[in-house]
Design a binder for these strands. Sequence first.
DNA 1: ATGGCCTGATCTTCAGGA
Length: 259
Amino acid sequence: MRIATWNVNSITARLPRLLAWLESSGTDVLCLQEAKTTEEQFPTEELRAAGYECAVHATGRWNGVAILSRAGVADVVRGLPGGPEYDGLAEPRSVAATCGPVRLWSVYVPNGREVGHDHYAYKLRWLEALKDAVAGDAGGERPFAVLGDYNIAPTDEDVWDRSVFEGSTHVTEPERAALAALRETGLGDVVPRPLKYDRPFTYWDYRQLGFPKNRGMRIDLVYGNAPFASAVKDSYVDREERKGKGASDHAPVVVDLDV
DNA sequence: ATGGCCTGATCTTCAGGA
């Protein structure tokens, strides 16, 4: 079974590439982030025609997550139980579904904007709620994983130049501590292979030749429980999908499971 | 070829991204 996570940066803008990639990669289940559309405008019919059922949680211009599956979508949970609001709104940043033998969450963790910003505090609260919400499944016997754009580089090796990020979000100790707390529920970081260069970056800024210069970050993560980790046969970043016209600024992270 | 931002909406300018 091939599963993946990908921040597509608008499913409307990305639909032709998304459909082509689903077919060429042979992905069975995709956890998708930044749909940037409403549930009504989500291309459910196009994806159904391609063989995928969709569990969608999306409300408009910002955020939006989904799970696309040709292994079924059961027991769908939209939103983060117990999660915080931002500006009085419960944003669509989480959706969960059971796809055949595995239970998966697709998450888009808040960006945080700047250290000290309300959004940064919101990011930390959101991660704490995520930890509480997944703890039961994380400790269970069924293969389980939380995949998505975490907006955190787990270590200094996960950014192209640590000095550039001094004082910035994505690399701070509280953010990394929140990731560590999440791991303590029974989840481990499934680190993918890079297909080029030495580090498996998953995001490169559109600006200033970020991708050609490999100025990237590893912020799209797969956190799986022990049964999930033991089923992993391979994992890699499909950097080919970051190339060319009409690419997202994130590349898909692919995981092959023997389940 | 991988090339000095991209996306959608408030729409010719801006917020947000990380």
